[in-house]
Simulated assay, not measured.
Amino acid sequence: MLSQRICKVSLTATRSNTFRQGCIAPALIRFASTTDGQEKIYTGSLASRMKAVKLFSLTTSITGAAVQPTLLEQSMKVGGTAMAIAACGVAGFFTIVTPLLLHFVTKKYVTELYFNKKTGEYTAITISLVLTRQETTFKPEDVTVPEVPGMFTSFEVNNKSLFLEPSLFPDPEHYVKIMGYDKPVDFKLNLTEAQDPQKSKK
């Protein structure tokens, strides 16, 4: 009887410890995800499609590079050197140029944007050529808005162009702050000559 009671007590203790661990573990994970100070404030609508397209393009490029020797050999047998050069040129174009062109267009697109309340910094996530995450950390004072924005360019940070969709911000104040719309407007009027009539006569 005494052994059965001891077994019951140990079993109850084991279950309670397991229950406590099961409750504490998610809480710790939740706590770790919020203590870093990063808050997601923006998600690009084309992020998943862009990743899928770039993955497909990268896969076809690797496959095309792998079959280049076979294509060259078969083209030499069928049409000689001219045929081989033409076939390899077309295949090489789609193997190399297409991923580079796609990356040139999509490298500015911000898939995610985080805000650190402690430091007041923003972290923009973009996709590299090989589908890795690239982080660009900046503050609103580091942002330069070009007078004539380029293609898929909202602003620049250290000569790096980034593109955001204003309508996707749940809190538009972040977009206003990043773009500097909360600052006084500088109309860049040349008032020095108007104030000095002697210089204007000269």
Rank of each mutant, 00 (worst) to 15 (best):
K77G: 07
K77L: 12
V78Q: 13
A82C: 07
M83C: 15
M83L: 12
A84P: 00
A84F: 02
I85Y: 02
I85C: 09
C88Y: 03
C88S: 15
C88M: 12
C88R: 03
A91H: 07
A91M: 12
A91E: 10
G92C: 06
F93A: 10
F93H: 11
F93W: 13
F93E: 03
F94W: 15
T95W: 01
I96C: 14
I96Y: 15
T98Q: 08
L101F: 15
L101H: 12
L102N: 03
F104D: 14
V105G: 10
T106G: 04
K107D: 04
K108N: 15
Y109K: 03
Y109V: 08
T111N: 08
T111K: 00
E112T: 06
L113V: 03
Y114L: 11
F115G: 00
K117Y: 10
K117R: 15
K117E: 11
T119H: 06
T119L: 02
T119G: 01
G120E: 05
G120D: 10
E121T: 11
I125R: 01
I125P: 00
T126H: 00
S128Q: 08
L129Y: 10
V130H: 12
T132S: 10
T132K: 14
Q134K: 13
T136V: 11
T136M: 07
T136L: 09
F138I: 03
K139N: 06
D142Q: 11
D142L: 06
D142S: 10
D142T: 08
D142G: 09
V143F: 05
T144R: 13
T144W: 09
T144I: 11
P146R: 10
P146Q: 10
P146A: 09
P149R: 14
G150N: 14
F152H: 04
T153W: 01
S154N: 05
S154I: 01
F155V: 02
E156H: 06
